[in-house]
Nucleic acid binder design. Structure first.
Lengths: 323, 323
DNA sequence: CAAAGCCATCCATTTCGGTGATGGCTCGCA
DNA sequence: TGCGAGCCATCACCGAAATGGATGGCTTTG
C-alpha cells in the first residue's frame, strides 16, 4: 500500500463508483478495479460493496477513508515543504471577505506583489463561514475573516479592527427610529448570503431590540448592497472603511453603533497543523505590518447623536465554535 | 513521490549514508542512489550533500524529514485501521512496570487471553521513563506506568491506586530510626535502575529528611530486591501488593508511609493521536474493569506505630512533564 | 427487448524498481 | 607516495507490476 493506492481508494469512495473515479483520475476503469482489488487483497478485507449502481464503502473502508484523505494531503505538503526555500516562490491561495478585499487587501497585495514577484497569488472571496470551511479542508492556505473565532484546528491572528456602522439612505436622521419602523414599512435588510458575519450581527442587533420578521434582500457584492441602501430600500451593516466613500458622496448616511458591538476584529486564519511556506509566511508578515496601523477614529463630521440606543450582549457576536 | 520513497529517504537520513541505508533496507546501494536521485529530480531540490564520509541533509532535506518519518507511520496505522474489525484480532504490545507485571497484570492477561483468543499479546517491562518514551515513539501501543504524568501527546487513564510501603529486614522495629542510621551504617537503598518512579520516591523521601549519600544497589527484578532487603542489606519502597507475600512469610517487614506520599497511582498511558484497535480497546476496557476494584486497606496485623514521621512535599512525587 | 451504465476479467505493452558490476573519488595508513 | 578501504554515481539488464484497451456479464431503465 502506498500513497497512490490511497488516492485511488479515496477517489472511488468520493465518487461512489469505479468508472467515475477512473475518469476523475484520468485513467481507465480496469486500472482502478485492479488497484482496489490488490488493495483489498493486501489488507485482507473488502473495502467496497459492489452493487449495480456503483460501489459503497464497507465498514473497513470507512475506517480507512480518513487516512486515505489525509496521507495524500501530507504528501503534497511534504513536496511543498521540501521545494520551499528561503526566497518566496510558488503560489499562495488566500481567502478574504468581500469587504476586506475591497478596502484592506489592495495595499497589501500591491506591496506583496512587488516584494515577491515569483509568487502567484490567488484571492477567493466568500463569507466567514465559507472561508473557514475552505481553510479547514485545505482548499485555502489562509483567509481574512471576521473574528473572533475559536476552533481547535485553527490559528486566528488579529490583523485589524474595523468599526461597524449602520448604513441608511441619506435622508434618515435617526437610525433607531428608522429600524423600529422597518418591519411595519416593509423595509428590508440588505445582507450578504448566509454565513456572512455582518449579516449575523445585524440580525442579532435587531433581534435584541425585539425587531423580528424583517424581510431580507440578499446580495453578493458590496456595491449592490450600498446601491440598494442609497435607494432607500433598506439598511445594512458594514465596516466604516468600506462605506466611507459612498457616505462622502452623500449617497448613504452612516450611523455609529453602541460600544458593545461597534468594533469587529478581522483575523487572518489558517490551519494550525498545515505547512507554512516562505511565500505564505511573508504574506502573513506583510499583512500584519501593513494592516496593524492604528485606525483613524470616527470622523468629526458625523453626528454622534445618531448613535443607536441598543444594548447588544454577547449574543450579538457569535463566534464559530469548534466541532 | 510515494511512501516508499519517503521511507528510503528517511533511512538515508537516519543512517547518514546511502550504503548503510541500503543495508538497513535489505537492498543494494545503487537502488537507493537511484531513488534518492529521482526524488531530488521530482522535487527540484537537492536533499543531501554528498561528501566522502557519506551524506548529510541539506536545508530542504531537513524540511522534508519530519514528513518522511510521519507518513510511513501513518500508512502502517491505516493498514491496521482497515484490517481491524469488530472482533479483536491481531497483536498488541503493551508495557508495564516490573511491579505491575508481577501483581496486577496476571489476572488481566488471563481474562483477556480467554476473551480474545485471536490476539497475540506482548508485554514489555521497564521503568516509567522508558515506557513513556517507548509509547511516544510508537514502539508500544500502551503502558502501565506510575502516575501522575502530564504530556500533551499522551493520554493517561488511572486504573488503580497502589499503597507504597517501606520494606526492611524483619527484625527492624522502627523504620524512621533505621533509615536514619542508614548512612552511618553503610546500609543501602535497593532500587531499580534509573528511571524507576519508586526509586525517585525513595530518594526524595530520604532527601526530605536530610539523609543523603546513602549507597545504592541496583537490581533489575523485584525478587532480587526483596531478597536483598530480607538479608538486611538495605531498604526499598514497593507497592504493598508486591511485598505482601514476602511479608506474610516473615522475610521482610512492611512499614506504612505518611499520607502525603503513601498512595501512588498506576495509569494506563497511550498516545493521544494513535489508532486504537479493537484488540487494544478491549484490553483497556478489561484492565479498567478488573483493576478498578476497591483496594483492600492496610492489614490490621501491621503496627501503625511504625509509620515514619516524614513530611514529603510535592517534590516527592515528580511528574513527567511534557517537553 | 434494446440500450446504457457499471464492474470483472483477460491480454499485450510499457514502465518502473531492483540487481550486480564498474569506476571515480577521498581518506587513512604504511 | 602508493595502496586499500569505504563511499557514491553510473550503466546495462532483468523481471515484476502498473497501465491501457477490449470484451463479457449483470442490472436498470425506458
Amino acid at each position: 500500500m502506498d500513497a497512490g493506492d490511497l488516492s485511488v481508494f479515496a477517489a472511488v469512495a468520493r465518487t461512489g463508483g469505479i468508472t467515475k473515479a477512473a475518469h476523475s483520475l484520468n485513467t481507465v476503469q480496469s486500472n482502478v478495479t485492479q488497484r482496489i482489488r490488490l488493495l483489498e487483497a493486501e489488507l485482507g478485507v473488502r473495502l467496497f460493496q459492489r452493487h449495480s449502481r456503483g460501489v459503497s464503502l464497507t465498514n473497513a473502508g470507512a475506517q480507512l477513508l480518513p487516512y486515505a484523505e489525509r496521507i495524500p494531503h501530507l504528501i503534497g505538503e511534504a513536496k511543498r515543504a521540501a521545494a520551499d526555500g528561503p526566497v518566496p516562490r510558488g503560489s499562495i491561495k488566500v481567502g478574504a471577505l468581500e469587504t476586506a478585499t475591497a478596502v484592506r487587501l489592495p495595499p497589501v497585495l500591491a506591496a506583496y506583489a512587488a516584494a515577491c514577484p515569483e509568487v502567484d497569488i490567488e484571492i477567493v472571496t466568500g463569507t466567514t463561514a465559507e472561508l473557514v470551511e475552505a481553510v479547514l479542508s485545505h482548499r485555502l492556505e489562509a483567509a481574512f475573516t471576521a473574528g473572533p473565532l475559536d476552533h481547535p484546528e485553527l490559528l486566528a491572528l488579529p490583523v485589524v479592527e474595523e468599526e461597524l456602522v449602520l448604513l441608511t439612505a441619506p435622508w434618515i436622521g435617526d437610525a433607531a427610529a428608522f429600524s423600529a419602523r422597518a418591519a411595519a414599512d416593509k423595509l428590508k435588510l440588505i445582507v450578504f448570503r448566509a454565513g456572512c458575519t455582518y449579516r449575523n450581527y445585524l440580525e442579532a442587533l435587531l433581534a435584541a431590540r425585539g425587531i423580528v420578521g424583517v424581510r431580507r434582500l440578499e446580495f453578493g457584492t458590496v456595491d449592490g448592497i450600498i446601491g440598494c441602501v442609497a435607494a432607500g430600500i433598506g439598511i445594512t451593516l458594514l465596516p466604516r472603511a468600506v462605506a466611507a466613500r459612498a457616505a462622502a458622496e452623500g449617497r448613504v448616511k452612516l450611523h455609529a453603533l453602541p460600544d458593545g458591538i461597534r468594533r469587529i476584529e478581522t483575523v487572518l486564519v489558517r490551519r494550525r497543523d498545515a505547512f507554512v511556506s516562505t511565500a505564505l509566511k511573508r504574506f502573513i508578515d506583510m499583512s500584519r505590518e501593513l494592516l496593524s496601523a492604528p485606525e483613524p477614529g470616527p470622523q468629526r463630521s458625523e453626528r454622534r447623536s445618531a448613535k443607536m440606543s441598543l444594548r447588544a450582549g454577547r449574543a450579538a457576536a457569535p463566534a464559530i465554535k469548534g466541532s
